[in-house]
């Protein structure tokens, strides 16, 4: 499989803290990739550097064989963590906005997804629950027909019903396209069945990665692996 993303020795420091510490990895294309690790392990910094919001101090990073920048961003749909939308927009207005400003945004797909994820199109963002707004943000992201989708903690602070609707929406939509979707989460249990490939991060570096089915055959569920890994880490400290 061709790598969609490669990192070589990527480092980013904030003051004394190393958010990314000689991160080296290679992510294969066409599938769902789980980026797993506890809070502060460097997941979000890694994602931000993929879309050029963070500039690494050193190391090399390539997306779709190019350096991250505005050119590669056309091909990436990125959902930041804690993403919010304009409160005075309705869903339809948000879609209209997206149609104008986001590359490869497909209005029809968005409408289909909204229907599927139970988001009324005349609904105003202001009046939405956290879960509804999260679903809207996700729709705006995945209705773009781009080769790479990055979802940073799409399930945080969202009720179980919304989470299930998001997962169903992802499955629904996955069938129709060949894309790479990176999902970071620490709520592994509900979604681990979706991961084709898993990467475990800790302290700014990738400590473990591989085909999820292979990892499963060797070590058990990603949920168990996650617990074992980070328990060991806590014990070392």
């Amino acid at each position: 499989m061709n790598a969609v993303i490669t990192c070589k020795e990527v480092t980013k420091t904030y003051g004394k803290k190393k958010a990314l510490d000689h991160l080296s990895l290679s992510i294969p294309g066409n599938g769902i990739v789980g980026i797993l690790g506890p809070n502060g392990c460097g997941k979000s910094t890694f994602f931000r550097s993929l879309v050029g919001l963070v500039k690494p101090d050193s190391g090399q990073m390539k997306i779709l064989d190019r350096k991250p920048g505005w050119k590669t961003n056309k091909d990436i749909a990125y959902l930041p963590d804690r993403a919010r939308w304009y409160p005075n927009h309705t869903v339809d207005e948000a879609f209209k906005w997206a149609k104008h400003f986001l590359d490869h945004f497909e209005l029809e797909t968005a409408i289909k997804l909204a229907d599927y994820m139970d988001i009324g199109r005349d609904m105003k963002v202001q009046g939405m629950s956290r879960g509804q707004e999260a679903r809207l943000m996700l729709i705006l992201c995945i209705a773009r027909n781009v080769p790479l989708v990055i979802l940073d903690e799409p399930f945080t602070g969202i009720d179980i019903i919304s989470r299930e609707q998001i997962i169903d929406g992802l499955i629904d939509y996955l069938q129709e396209r060949n894309q790479t979707i990176l999902i970071s989460t620490h709520e592994i249990h509900e979604i681990e069945g979706l991961f084709d490939y898993s990467i475990f991060m800790d302290k700014g570096t990738a400590i473990w990665s591989g085909e999820t089915e292979t990892l499963r055959a060797q070590y058990g569920s990603m949920h168990q692996v996650f617990k074992t890994f980070y328990k060991r880490r806590l014990e070392r400290q």
């Binding site: 499955i171 996955l174 979706l194 084709d196």
Partner: peptide
């Protein structure tokens, strides 16, 4: 269908 089963079991449709 592939989609029905994938959604019910919450697993990757490719699988």
């Amino acid at each position: 269908s592939v989609r029905e089963l994938a959604q019910a079991l919450k697993i990757n449709p490719n699988t």
